[in-house]
């Protein structure tokens, strides 16, 4: 459905950040993209959604195909209209608009005006909390509520692929669980494919069917989610578990010598 073939991205015409990324999002699946800070996960999402151009970034090589058509030359607004919607990192709700106005803004590209009302109700169905807050100025919502609003706003565009950038950022563990459950529910009920970028590797691999691991602008490992969960290297470097299943601590610091095998 959505396919990246060997793309390279540079910023400001010099800085090479993505060095040949290939990945695929099949219809109706949740795919997760993991990696440390600065690995290029967000850049990958922005390359897909077209927001890269705002930041002086450019896809210089490779292609991005959505349902057989190349989209990496299109402007961001055309890509949204085609059915790819990015939920940006840090929620980015319109802080001076009310909750409901935020949802309406999400529906900007919709042609079928008549269904917008019923879709707002649907979003309230997924996030009952938002219904109570519908006339509240969204800048005063809590972090979790804003994240719900950001996801709900994405739903309003009726996308076929949703790109989620760190939905767990800055949220309490219990709330993370709740948000991820809703993401799974949306995926199942609406049939939306999801490309999920996360630091919280455990939560992400739990709901995804397939995962990619990025490092330094490359994909260093991929595989079905359960396989990645069992992989000793992934366990150690991303899930924070040692071979014994213990929490990693300073006591066994000698592990610093161990290299990530895929880097050598």
């Amino acid at each position: 459905m959505l396919k990246l073939n060997n793309i390279e991205v540079i910023y400001n015409e010099v800085i090479l950040v993505l060095k040949g990324i290939s990945l695929e999002v099949p219809p109706g699946k949740i795919i997760s993209l993991l990696g440390a800070n600065g690995a290029g996960k967000t850049t990958t999402l922005k390359a897909i959604s077209g927001l890269l151009k705002e930041e002086n970034g450019e896809v210089v090589d490779g292609t991005i195909e959505f349902e057989g058509r190349e989209i990496h030359k299109q402007p961001a607004e055309a890509i949204v209209a085609n059915g790819i919607f990015q939920v940006m990192e840090g929620r980015r709700v319109f802080v001076h608009l009310t909750v409901e106005e935020n949802l309406r803004a999400g529906a900007f590209t919709r042609k079928d005006k008549g269904n917008i009302r019923s879709d707002i109700e649907k979003v309230y169905g997924y996030f009952p909390r938002l219904q109570d807050l519908q006339h509240r100025i969204s800048g005063y919502l809590s972090g979790g509520e804003q994240q719900m609003l950001a996801i709900g706003r994405a739903l309003m565009a009726r996308p076929r692929v949703m790109l989620l950038d760190e939905p767990s950022l800055g949220l309490a563990p219990l709330l993370v669980q709740e948000i991820f459950n809703i993401i799974r529910k949306i995926n199942q009920e609406e049939g939306v494919s999801i490309l999920l970028v996360e630091q919280n590797a455990m939560a992400a691999l739990n709901i995804a069917t397939f995962g990619y691991i990025m490092e330094n602008g490359r994909i260093v490992m991929d595989g079905p989610a359960e396989q990645l969960r069992e992989n000793p290297d992934v366990k150690e470097f991303y899930l924070g578990l040692t071979e014994f299943g213990d929490q990693k601590g300073f006591r066994n610091i000698k592990h610093y010598k161990r290299r990530k095998r895929w880097l050598s």
């Binding site: 607004e77 890509i79 949204v80 209209a81 980015r92 319109f94 309406r104």
Partner: peptide
């Protein structure tokens, strides 16, 4: 109106507005 809300959204956060498909 849809355009009016889009204008206020753009005033709030241009990049986020762009990610809604607002030109």
């Amino acid at each position: 109106t849809r355009l009016g809300i889009a204008m206020r959204a753009t005033a709030d956060d241009q990049t986020a507005a762009l990610s809604m498909g607002i030109s």
